[in-house]
Amino acid sequence: MLSLRNICKTFNMTGAKEDERVALDHINLDIEPGEFVTIIGGNGSGKSTTLNVVAGSITPDSGDILLNGESILKLKEYQRASYFGRVFQDPMMGTSGDMSVLENLEIAYRRGRVHSPFVWGFKKENKEDFIRELKRFDLGLEDRLNQKVGVMSGGQRQALTLLMATMRNKPTHKMVRRDYIKFSEKDKSLAAKEFDDVYEPAKKEYKEKCKVIKSDKNLTFEQKKQQIADIYDEFDKKVRQFDLTKQILLLDEHTAALDPKTAKKVLELTDKIVKENQMTTLMVTHNMKDALTYGNRLIMFNQGHIVLDVKGEEKKKLTVEDLLKKFDVQI
């Protein structure tokens, strides 16, 4: 769960009162896991600032940001990247134009991980994964892995950024343990014990089973490989039940720079990815129709305040006219 507590942010704090612009005024917001929130509001109402505060690009003047009950305010932008995937308004922003599709994907795959200076950056098995992912999203990029991203259209770049923001290597068991201790609401030593009580026997069991299979002379090499992979999956599942670091997707007007047809395609792709992975998502948009069509919660900002917050059934009943009325009243 992502919570904002009393977040305030004022720009142009030069001393002169008339220059100051309040972007966020005591914002309180709780976002449940799995929610797809669309955020609308006029220019300068604070919607993009909210996203930037969450991601760490902007430091708030006061208030706190909690992720699963733990404050992440002190984490730097790059450290928060392991919890947030981001897509920007500018298609040039999210990808590196002079690098190939493959290189961009490799970097995204290691988001929030250590980049080792001793490990070769291209892996064969990753490449197969990427091709499978790209095929699934039907972007026509799977044959163009070695092409530079710079020569692609804005829509393709934005779709690629979206894929990069949502695709990530599974956290290692060590990371699962770390985040479980950090984010579970239990006592720290208790959480560690709970994890170890499951993890250690499971690991032992896995190793013993492996030994048995390896010493079995009746099996071919391929069969052995298959069986060990199956056992590993079983072991992995046991560890994954502790995985609390669900990714949160931050979309900052990511279709604003695209033509209507491409924008629609990218939005549908977004919806598909979010639904498939059950990702918690915050989407800022200027298009009220999109804000109503997609997502299961809608928030409207005005001058640094949240003026509308509807969920579920209530949101389904909303129409563009209702929203416009609300807009008129504010202005």
Partner: peptide, 19 residues
């Protein structure tokens, strides 16, 4: 090395990708 190249080309992307 790849992370360094990405940073040089697009610092904002580098940060968003946890570099």
């Amino acid at each position: 090395g790849m992370a360094i190249r990405a940073t040089g080309l697009n610092e904002r992307m580098g940060k968003a990708q946890g570099i």
